[in-house]
Design a protein around this nucleic acid. Structure first.
Length: 881
DNA sequence: CACTCCCGCCAATTA
DNA sequence: TAATTGGCGGGAGTG
């Protein structure tokens, strides 16, 4: 039809809205020019658009007659067509096909004609994708409704979704302002980040997570109990958000839309099935499982999907799973978001959008300054991540409640994500109802505080430095209590005091492995704002010490240096991967493959990432190769173990996540402080500790909330270890913490033994700083040599680190019960801090990004000294204690 | 029959 | 209180 119309359209179209527009004030962009002379004709019946039609419509609106929908429909159709023709831009994808029907049908408006998707297209056609910054177009709901000939209710459906992506914002009662897609990339990025946090976990192991959740969550739950336990109401949700208003309503469409988008962004495959999405969303809500609810959710998802489809962000596909073919949607929008500005920084509200031309090319990707204003707000939002919502609301302007809502929403979203993943898992697994997830989800709220942890990392740095000099292991150990550093850590947690302060251990989901690296920053989270307060001073220190924290670093790192290329590649790879999988849902399916997503995905990307990191920060490239090797080896192991984890699928890797990681890595200096591998199941499987020396703070971070952890040791699954070199630092054992010591030592010994068993891989336990390059993989290092003057890392370490990261996901603690090691201490500080910049610690989770999302992030930051690290890592090959 | 999802009642929120 | 928003689910259109 379109085509058909077009030919004629010219004449016809003219009208559309123009009159209206004019009257209205929309800022319509000039682009679309309006008008054409009119013509009429052709279809007498429907009466295509003509200028008059508008009038008619309006009139009809007024009159009851209007009601004839059919007529209207007919009328509208033409409109549609015309519009499309006019503004092809809005839709690229082939809507046309559908419409192809032609005029014949015009008459018969079948349901399709009335579809929300079509309506949305029409709606979008009215406004430029990239409006000039200067012009502000306002949208009057009434007008639009009348113009488009639909009830207002329908317009709300569209606008709500658009609002969730910030294409529009509500300014007043019946008024919305059109922003276009300038901010879209940022919005998506934010959503992606938020999604990773929450959903990322999904990817990883579920079970473990749960454990963690419990622990963490316990406290939180307490606060939140309502929601889960009782569905009380809507409240439940709100609770999460914490304060602010939670209008009950918020929940729906807008949030649902964001979550839905998050799922896509987090998903490797970029395909999300409706049922999964529905489940996830429901969970959030927490409702009981109702079947009816499910149906309702699905209905809404269709509504959202229609709008997103109109935006060209997704398309409908079918995935065939075990059970059969299921409807699903595939993300066809931008996947990567460029740097973005680092949000925070300085953007002032500059504002001008890029010229469209540029945009066209880059459009999505560009992060440039467009739309800062909002972003700022959002940024907070993003950064806030997990709980952000609670506390933060950056926006100064209270204006519209809606904004607040969004913030809240974000937080909610985050929470949701956590839930979702669980759910997903469950779903995949079979069971359905899980309420369990809740805790976690809930956490977020409280979690915020937890999240706040992030700051820690920063803090850490500084601390480290301070310590560095001294950096004796013991110090680290003492860390918990003692040094300032310690306190810092604790604080960071502050919100949570830690579950167990004393405890040395953390539990992690079995499946995953975690690596802790010294100096990690969490880059990603960088956004998170560290809490200003806590961090504040520290942060300052940190900054001083390490200039590069946060965003800046990253970006710079990435860009600069060799790493860059690598980065680029990675993404590409990722993309590819993504594309490949159409069918499977990334989220859901998992099953087999397993395991550590990291390994999987990463080999390529991961490696590169790792490398980058090294190179960048360390400048030690060599390790990479070895690392890779290690990784691979590890992977298998993981896989085995992972059986349980059904979820993580290799394939799935979160592309984005990886990317992020890589970035992070780059930033970071990397040395992993600890490596943790989780045994899949039981203890037996893994076990290793590494003593890492870390600054306590770092540890704590990692833990994420967990109690403070300074862990001297890490348990790693033997297998995993085998794959990579382990390092232990004996020093720790010593008494850092009084308690831990004993246990610790024991643990250590045990672990090692295990490793030995496993031992294909050499394990090293370093008592101190020995470096053994030996690590199987390691070799390459030499050349590059880490020689990290600054860092001190031994090559080995670096390698190991990198390897670790890549490979396995690290799991931090396991079930405590099992190991319960105590970690004595924290880690010693890292002397290295010398290099401020580099000192980031990164904490990567393997696989997807972090299942333990929070953890990672939190952790991210630690910094470690190379020395400390080295110690840990380095070791004599032999085990033993 | 299953999948979509339009339609509009009516409650929650706002003005 | 009236108007605006928007949750929700019946049930119809489509394949």
């Amino acid at each position: 039809e379109n085509i058909y119309d077009r030919s004629r359209m010219a004449p016809k179209t003219p009208i559309k809205n123009e009159p209206i527009d004019l009257s209205k004030q929309k800022g319509c962009t000039p682009e679309r020019s309006p008008i054409t002379p009119v013509k009429i004709i052709d279809r007498p019946q429907p009466d295509p658009w003509t200028p008059t039609t508008n009038l008619k419509i309006l009139v009809s609106a007024a009159s009851p007659d209007m009601r004839d929908r059919e007529k209207k429909k007919e009328l509208f159709r033409p409109i549609e067509n015309s519009e499309q023709s006019d503004t092809p831009d809005s839709l690229q994808y082939g809507i046309v096909d559908d419409s192809t029907v032609d005029e014949f049908e015009k008459q018969r408006p079948s349901r399709k004609q009335k579809s929300l998707g079509l309506l949305c297209q029409k709606f979008l056609a009215r406004y430029p994708n990239y409006p000039l910054s200067t012009e502000k177009t306002t949208i009057s709901l009434d007008e639009v409704a009348s113009i488009l000939g639909v009830e207002r209710r329908r317009i709300y459906d569209i606008v709500n979704v658009l609002e969730s992506l910030q294409l529009v914002s509500r300014v007043a009662k019946n008024q919305y302002s059109w922003h276009g897609r300038h901010n879209l990339s940022q919005t998506l990025k934010m959503l992606q980040e938020a999604g990773e946090l929450q959903y990322g976990e999904l990817m990883t192991s579920q079970h473990k997570e749960q454990d963690l959740e419990y622990k963490f969550g316990e406290r939180k739950k307490e606060t939140i109990p309502d929601s889960q336990d009782r569905p009380l109401l809507d409240f439940s949700e709100p609770d999460c958000t914490s304060a602010s208003a939670n209008s009950r309503k918020d929940k729906s469409l807008r949030i649902m839309s964001q979550k839905f988008v998050m799922l896509f962004l987090v998903s490797k495959t970029k395909i999300v099935t409706l049922d999964i999405a529905a489940k996830i969303l429901i969970e959030e809500t927490q409702d009981t499982v109702d079947h009816s609810k499910f149906k309702t959710k699905v209905r809404r998802l269709y509504d959202i999907a229609n709008v997103l489809t109109s935006l060209g962000l997704i398309k409908k596909v079918h995935v065939t799973e075990e059970r059969g073919r299921k409807p699903a949607f595939k993300w066809i929008g931008p996947v990567e978001f460029p740097e973005k500005t680092d949000e925070l920084r300085g953007h002032s509200p500059t504002s001008d959008p890029l010229p469209e031309t540029q945009r066209g090319a880059c459009a999505q990707y560009q992060t440039s300054a467009t739309g800062k204003q909002r972003f700022t707000r959002h940024a907070s939002f993003n950064s806030a991540q997990p709980c952000e919502a609670t506390g933060r609301k950056v926006s100064s302007e209270p204006n519209s409640p809606r904004q607040e809502r969004q913030d809240e929403n974000c937080s909610k979203m985050i929470n949701l994500a956590a839930i979702c993943r669980q759910k997903i898992e469950e779903d995949t697994g079979s069971a359905k109802n899980s309420n369990i997830s809740l805790p976690f989800s809930l956490l977020p709220v409280p979690g915020d505080s937890d999240f706040c942890v992030n700051p820690l990392p920063q803090a850490v740095f500084p601390v480290v430095q301070a310590d560095v000099p001294s950096f004796s292991l013991p110090n680290g150990i003492s860390s918990q209590a003692s040094h300032p550093s310690t306190p810092a850590a604790s604080k960071t947690e502050n919100g949570k005091p830690t579950l167990v302060p004393s405890q040395p251990f953390l539990c992690f989901p079995s499946s995953s492995l975690f690596m802790l690296c010294g100096g990690l920053q969490e880059n990603n989270l960088s956004e998170r704002l560290p809490t200003a307060g806590d961090l504040g001073s520290r942060s300052a220190e940190a900054q001083a010490a390490v200039p590069p924290t946060g965003c800046q670093k990253r970006s710079s790192h990435k860009c600069s240096s060799p790493s860059a290329p690598a980065d680029d590649e990675e993404p590409a790879a990722k993309k590819q991967t993504l594309e490949h999988n159409d069918l499977p849902l990334s989220l859901v399916v998992p099953k087999k493959p397993s395991e550590s997503p990291k390994a999987e995905s990463s080999p390529g990307s991961g490696c590169s990432a790792a490398v980058h990191l090294e190179t960048n920060s360390l400048d030690l490239p060599s390790p990479a190769a070895p690392e890779v090797a290690n990784k691979e080896s590890t992977k298998p192991l993981d896989c085995q173990e992972q059986e349980k984890q059904s979820q993580n699928k290799d394939p799935d890797e979160p592309p984005p996540g990886n990317e992020h990681i890589s970035k992070e890595n780059a930033n970071q200096p990397f040395q992993p402080q600890y490596i943790y591998v989780q045994p899949t199941t039981g203890l037996s499987s893994f076990n290793f500790l590494f003593s890492a020396n870390q600054a306590p703070g770092a540890i704590s971070l990692a833990a994420n909330q967990m109690p403070s952890l300074s862990v001297p040791c890490v348990m790693v699954p033997s297998a995993a270890l085998a794959s990579f070199p382990l390092v232990c630092s004996p020093s720790f054992t010593s008494p850092l913490s009084s308690v831990p010591d004993g246990s610790f030592s024991a643990a250590a010994s045990t672990t090692f033994s295990m490793s030995s068993l496993a031992s294909t891989t050499p394990v090293f336990i370093s008592t101190t700083a020995v470096v053994t390059p030996k690590v199987s993989p390691a070799p390459s290092v030499d050349p590059q040599q880490p020689a990290p003057p600054t860092l001190h890392l031994s090559p080995v370490l670096t390698r190991s680190c990198s390897a670790v990261k890549l490979d396995s996901p690290v799991c931090m603690g396991h079930p405590v019960t099992l190991l319960k090691l105590q970690q004595p201490s924290s880690a010693p500080l890292t002397p290295k801090s010398i290099r401020p910049a580099h000192n980031e610690a990164f904490f990567k989770t393997p696989g997807s990004l972090g299942d333990p999302v929070a953890w990672k992030k939190n952790e991210g930051n630690q910094t470690r000294n190379a020395s400390s690290v080295q110690r840990r890592l380095e070791i004599s090959s032999t085990s033993p204690d």
